[in-house]
Design a protein around this nucleic acid. Structure first.
Lengths: 134, 134
DNA sequence: AAGAAAATGAGAATTATTCTTATTTATTTG
DNA sequence: CAAATAAATAAGAATAATTCTCATTTTCTT
């Protein structure tokens, strides 16, 4: 059957939210961000749709950071920095994506390599400043 | 008697277990691996000591892989491959550790970079074979 | 407009991990 | 060597992020 583009308001709002932010939010952060425009959105709906988008490849998961799963609406491969102090996640677009290493990895592992993740950990500028003034 | 027993404490057994395996086990996997030599070890003890070693820097955490935290007794920086099918984690010692990228990352982020992790995801050889025969 | 299919809200269920407390084991001290 | 003190452990309860259930609402098809 032919389907026109379906319009599911809350689902769309969740995707727009992810695509419109660079904070790499968790499910709860998405829920908070949507409070103003959709005060009646359920946390379960956020979790459900994030799982769906992830399975579709529409968004990517950055994995569990400090015990909480974080998401990125930008599926282009790029490098991330995680602040161990405030759990902020920032893009490092300036750095070469390590995709070129996938083939090399595949040879060594003798399996099929689908993706890779390069992640730096440390303390962000804001948290460094806070520590100095304390 | 007391001196000899000191070397057979459960804490030591947990560390030895981690250092003697390359499967990058979770807490539960460590618990299982120790069943034969220490059938009365408690899962809480495993968790408690893994947290301790991690805080000390005696071992490293590879983060949550498919929802479960995995550990590595080898604190030397090296690259890992994760099978999305069976959750196996393998070392890629052959590949350059990306430590040299830390300085570059620090410049871009304007913060302090402590560590980094390069991880490849895909399907391991064993799981590929299983899929073909199915 | 009616019926079918999909999405949602609310809260219960799940599960990896952490915490609490009583007990056991190791270490220090007299 | 023995008493006192400190550290480690076992068992199970508590916690918290995530998933699941199901009744209801919304959207789509005819």
């Amino acid at each position: 059957m032919e389907h026109a583009a379906k319009h599911f308001r809350k689902r769309d709002a969740i995707l727009s939210c992810l695509r419109g932010t660079t904070i790499h939010p968790s499910a709860e952060m998405v829920h908070d961000l949507l409070q103003e425009s959709h005060p009646d959105i359920s946390l379960a709906t956020v979790y459900r749709n994030l799982s769906l988008f992830k399975a579709q490849g529409t968004i990517q998961s950055l994995g569990m950071i400090h015990g909480i799963e974080r998401f990125d609406g930008n599926t282009n491969p790029h490098v991330h920095f995680v602040c161990n102090c405030c759990s902020a996640i920032m893009d490092l677009h300036q750095m070469d994506a390590p995709q070129r290493l996938c083939n090399e990895a595949a040879q060594h592992i003798g399996g099929q390599v689908d993706s890779c993740q390069l992640m730096f950990f440390g303390t962000c500028r804001a948290c460094l400043a806070k520590q100095e003034s304390a």
